[in-house]
Simulated assay, not measured.
Amino acid sequence: MAANRQMEIALAAVKLFERKGYHATSVQDIADEVGLQKGSLYHYIHSKEDLLLQIAHQAITDFNDRLEAILASNLPAKEKLIQAVENHLTVSTANIETTTVLLREAFSLGENQHQVIQDLTDRYVDLWAAILNEGKANGEFHVEQPKIAALAILGACNWVYRWYRTSGKLGAKEISRIFSAVFLDGLLA
């Protein structure tokens, strides 16, 4: 029961952090959202910052775990990259509030907590670069600086939280096909 309540609190926090921002959301707002007294909320959480850390940690860990599975597959690097883009965009758009909190609000964490998220984020970039390095090593990709290229791809993929709408004409799979074509084929005819 306590685990369900903690999940309910985390989901309420995600919604509030996404809508109002981390700093503008009070512990009282979170308590009100889940129908608890502020004092009772502390039975389930240590602090608002710990709640943000928990949300960001779970989100980036999920991204890392999924990308590690893609990287471990026997697929050619091109297919790994296509799957990585599709996975990133599908997860991001399916969990747009959480993605927004991870990308926009995790910077509000204190230095030590932010470093935990930064280390996991750096790991994610390294996994993308590993796909590009693999493709470079086997002749699939021409890429001078795999880590910079990985950051460029992630920059494009991460920005989806700012403009994606579920009511839009294209879903995550269609958008990922377009992105992958740009990343793999470029723009030149």
Rank of each mutant, 00 (worst) to 15 (best):
R66A: 12
R66Y: 05
L67M: 08
E68A: 07
E68W: 03
E68S: 08
I70Q: 05
I70R: 05
I70M: 06
A72Y: 06
A72D: 11
S73M: 07
S73L: 08
S73D: 12
N74K: 05
N74M: 04
N74E: 06
P76M: 01
P76Y: 03
A77T: 01
K78M: 06
K78Q: 10
K78T: 02
K78F: 02
E79V: 12
K80Y: 08
L81D: 00
L81S: 02
L81F: 10
I82M: 08
I82E: 10
Q83E: 13
A84V: 00
A84P: 01
V85M: 11
V85Y: 12
E86W: 06
E86T: 13
E86L: 07
N87E: 14
N87S: 14
L89Y: 05
L89M: 15
T90L: 03
T90Q: 12
V91K: 06
V91R: 11
V91Y: 13
S92C: 06
S92F: 01
S92M: 02
T93Q: 07
T93N: 07
A94W: 05
A94N: 15
N95A: 02
N95P: 02
I96P: 03
E97S: 14
E97D: 14
T98Y: 05
T98K: 08
T99F: 02
T100E: 00
T100A: 04
V101P: 04
V101I: 01
L102H: 06
L102N: 07
L102I: 01
L102C: 05
L103W: 06
L103Y: 15
R104L: 06
R104G: 10
E105M: 00
E105K: 00
A106F: 09
A106K: 02
A106I: 01
F107I: 11
F107T: 08
S108N: 14
S108G: 12
L109E: 11
L109I: 11
G110Y: 05
G110F: 08
N112F: 04
N112I: 07
Q113V: 01
H114A: 07
Q115L: 11
Q115K: 14
V116F: 03
V116T: 12
I117C: 09
I117F: 11
Q118V: 13
Q118P: 06
Q118E: 14
Q118K: 13
D122H: 13
D122V: 13
D122R: 14
R123I: 07
Y124T: 00
Y124G: 00
Y124C: 01
V125L: 15
V125E: 15
